[in-house]
Simulated assay, not measured.
Amino acid sequence: MEEKLNPWLHIWFKPRAVIRQELEKPDREKYFILLSIVIGMLTAFTGYEQNSPVLNPISLTSVVVFGGAAGGLFMLYFISWVNAVVGRWLGGRGYASDLRVAALRGSMVPSLLTVFIGLIDFAIRGEEFFYSVNLLIETREMSTLAFIAGGMTPALIVLQVIAFVWTFIISLKSIGEAHGFSAWMALLMYILAALLIFIPIMIISFIVSIFIFL
Rank of each mutant, 00 (worst) to 15 (best):
L35D: 05
V38M: 13
S52R: 09
Y31Q: 12
V85H: 00
A44P: 02
W89E: 06
K25C: 07
L73N: 05
N51H: 07
G47K: 04
L76K: 05
A103L: 03
W89I: 07
Y95K: 14
W81M: 09
L104V: 10
F32Q: 01
F32N: 05
A44E: 14
R100S: 10
M41S: 06
V101I: 13
R105A: 11
E29K: 13
R93L: 07
N51D: 14
F66L: 13
L76D: 02
F66A: 10
R28H: 08
R105C: 10
I33V: 15
L35P: 00
I79T: 13
L23M: 11
D98S: 12
G94S: 05
G92S: 04
L99H: 07
S52A: 08
T61F: 08
E29N: 13
I39D: 00
G40R: 03
I33K: 09
L60G: 06
Q50H: 12
G87L: 01
L42S: 05
G72E: 00
E24I: 09
Y95V: 14
E29V: 12
R105N: 13
A69L: 03
F78E: 01
L42A: 12
R100G: 07
F66M: 10
L104C: 04
E49V: 13
G47R: 04
G47A: 14
L55S: 03
A44Q: 14
D98T: 03
V82E: 01
R28A: 04
G67H: 02
V85W: 06
R93T: 10
S36D: 01
Y95C: 06
L73C: 03
F66V: 14
Y31D: 15
I58R: 11
A103N: 13
E24D: 15
I58P: 00
N83E: 07
V64N: 02
S59R: 11
L42F: 13
F74D: 06
S59W: 03
L104D: 01
R88T: 08
V64I: 10
V85M: 08
L23Q: 03
N56Y: 08
N83A: 02
S97Q: 13
L55A: 12
M41P: 01
S62I: 11
G92P: 00
